[in-house]
Design a protein around this nucleic acid. Sequence first.
DNA 1: GAATTCGCACTGGTCCAACCAGTTGACCGC
DNA 2: GCGGTCAACTGGTTGGACCAGTGCGAATTC
Lengths: 256, 256
Amino acid sequence: MTVPRPAGPGYLADPVLRPATVADAVFTRLRDAVLSGDLAPGDPLPGERDLAESFGVNRHAVREALRRLEQVRLVAVRQGEQTRTLDWRRTSGLDLVLGLVDGDVLDTPTLTRDMLEMRACLGADAARLAADRADPAARRAVVDAVRAYDDAVSDIADLHDADIAFWRAIVEASGNVAYLLTFNSLVSHALAIAPVPSDHRADELLDIASHRQLADHILEGRSADAHRVATSLLTRSIPSLDHHDPVTPSAAGERA
Amino acid sequence: MTVPRPAGPGYLADPVLRPATVADAVFTRLRDAVLSGDLAPGDPLPGERDLAESFGVNRHAVREALRRLEQVRLVAVRQGEQTRTLDWRRTSGLDLVLGLVDGDVLDTPTLTRDMLEMRACLGADAARLAADRADPAARRAVVDAVRAYDDAVSDIADLHDADIAFWRAIVEASGNVAYLLTFNSLVSHALAIAPVPSDHRADELLDIASHRQLADHILEGRSADAHRVATSLLTRSIPSLDHHDPVTPSAAGERA
DNA sequence: GAATTCGCACTGGTCCAACCAGTTGACCGC
DNA sequence: GCGGTCAACTGGTTGGACCAGTGCGAATTC
């Protein structure tokens, strides 16, 4: 009995997709078990030896998977004790969603909307900070990026890349490392959903005038204007979701 | 020759700190080598066998460390090829900073300021969203949390915990999973710096009136007011840093 | 001589089989 | 009943063997 090999983790940017390994398969299976609730927070996992046997793989493969689960804070491992499941809503970080297809195991049809909202919030603040305190070289990098934007209008894919480069320049100029790292996670996840840019997204990408305006505001230090234009650009793509209530019918009331 | 065992990863919330393992030590060493620039982006790492020998540990321990490095996107591993160093500024996520003491290897004395800025940005937006669209139960949870706040004023540690619980309720109410996950990372990192709350932080924590106001705005759906009060609360703790320029003398200009 | 092909020498991936080191709880003696 | 002891878990570590891709150089072919 061998564990089926799912598609490898898609979060590696440059290289060709790495073929899935045995440890990847175990990781995916266990991660989904935690995220789907099959393993409730606090529940102990089977021992490494048991998992290895039931998956039909070597114990080391299981251990490597558990290491990764521990790294994203889905489980807690301590020698002598049983490995326990953690509550990802209270412990995990944003990187958890990488390698997840939207609407897959995580019961969040809103996940894409959530990340777009976050992008808008951080992007606007980064633009403000960049206008406020970026050093001259960083400001020039933003202007250069918006210039490169022009050469990409012909192809939608190029435009997408240029857009990412543009915002990266802004986030870099903001001097906020936390924003930069979170931006990376957002971009990595975006790769999974990039092939389906909506009309709203096209509206944003094709508004070259606003992009140039924004770069100019940053260059000249007009932080309030930069914030305003950035917000205007970044909020267009956010789907409304029609006030779609959470999936859980009435579970929310039980946490009084 | 045995690798020295550093303090274990401090990002596990509840349990007692796990004693550092051999793989932890290797992970820390390699991570620091990447973050400090000893291993430049694109550089190949020594082979697993070489690393195992030079660290005086078994190859399996090295592999577990490499798995974790791959998980935080500091290296790229592919069978047959050499393991290569990635550019963390372009690939890593926010979880990278967990387990890092501020000013340690990451040349970012601004890291704490950055995370406080992010907290302010996300917290304010979460408050706005919560006032806009939270379901009744979630609004009540916010009010309950601010009530529990009263009982904690006597002890500064309790107050700190109550504050976290209060903001968690708001982030939960916002219905944005991305905010929730990022909040977790911020809180986890805060654990490392919690023992040194500044005067500004105390100003924020002791302003019970504003907290109660904020909860009321959310309860009544006044999103603009909620955003304003939240911003006011969350921006007090942000150190100014006296426009401290980046450490790199003039390297920023070279990326034109 | 240049292009192709083959094959060895790497790289990481997987497995087996032990044994070490903490934790727990049942058992036995006081 | 209380306390110590030991056995039976748990994960942690090791060694060694072999599988499976990659790349580069040498041998072959045109």
